[in-house]
């Protein structure tokens, strides 16, 4: 579980962000939405210790800033928005996900290999295991990195726009993976610009605006606050007339 209380962080150029009270639980999917620059990625970076903060960010029973980088990465896995493409194959990348557990000197155990095989299987990357990252498409690369994060086997998984380069079929597959992970007890925090997807797949939606938390509610509750959504996104977000589709969406007309 990750609990945030009155945490404030800022960048060197002076832009500050404050997160009053948030609680991300294991076994649940939380989507973080908001306009560009609202502090979505900053929230994740603060949790993994890339940004200094005032206030409290508790990972399990420990304050994030008190944990060593290695200990923190045994509790929280993180997939950033921008993914590099060094000249390594997919299997090597996924094995890197086991680094927090064995370091760079200990040999991989059978258990490590099991986690890697499972991650490759879940993400459907088994056939690509010997392909180089630089030879993959954007979507395949993102799945390879997702496999790395799954192989890390941490209670909480932070994903920064994990489906940016994926086509519809792969997005559906990734959502299925996230559901399965949540059902298995993993907590997922996912930053997204896809409002329909965030509302439809999450247990909780965290709405950020100009560095502040505007709402942290189940999607059904937040969907009712149309004025708030309008204020945050600056555009009319429609709700489907179909009673089964309760969630807002963006439309041209």
């Amino acid at each position: 579980m990750i609990e945030i209380k009155n945490a404030k962080t800022r960048y060197i150029h002076g832009r500050s962000f404050s997160y009053q009270e948030l609680c991300f639980e294991e076994g649940k999917i939380t989507s973080v939405i908001g306009k560009n620059g609202s502090g979505k990625s900053t929230l994740l970076k603060m949790i993994i210790g890339m940004l200094r903060y005032d206030g409290n960010v508790m990972i399990g029973n420990s304050e994030s800033r008190d944990l060593s980088a290695r200990k923190r990465s045994q509790r929280v896995a993180y997939l950033p928005q921008i993914l590099k493409t060094p000249r390594i194959d997919v299997e090597t990348l996924v094995f890197h996900g086991r680094y927090p557990w064995h370091g760079s000197f200990r040999r991989m155990s059978g258990r490590d290999t099991e986690f890697v095989q499972r991650a490759l299987y879940i993400t459907g990357m088994e056939a690509y295991r010997h392909r180089f990252l630089c030879d993959l498409s954007g979507g395949e690369r993102q799945r390879a990195y997702l496999a790395m994060v799954i192989a890390q086997d941490t209670p909480m998984i932070l994903l920064d726009e994990p489906m940016t380069y994926m086509d519809m079929a792969i997005q559906k597959r990734i959502l299925d993976i996230l559901y399965t992970l949540a059902k298995d007890g993993y907590g997922i925090i996912m930053v997204s610009h896809n409002i329909e997807q965030s509302f439809s797949c999450s247990d909780t939606v965290c709405l950020l605006h100009e560095g502040n938390v505007m709402a942290f509610d189940p999607p059904e509750e937040l969907a009712k606050q149309e004025d708030l959504l309008y204020e945050v996104f600056g555009t009319k977000i429609k709700k489907s007339k179909d009673k089964e589709l309760l969630y807002p969406y963006v439309a041209v007309k």
Partner: peptide, 13 residues
């Protein structure tokens, strides 16, 4: 080589 953010997420200072 995976980038600063990914490396931090994997426990590298």
């Amino acid at each position: 080589l995976l980038g600063d953010e990914t490396a931090t997420g994997l426990g590298v200072n």
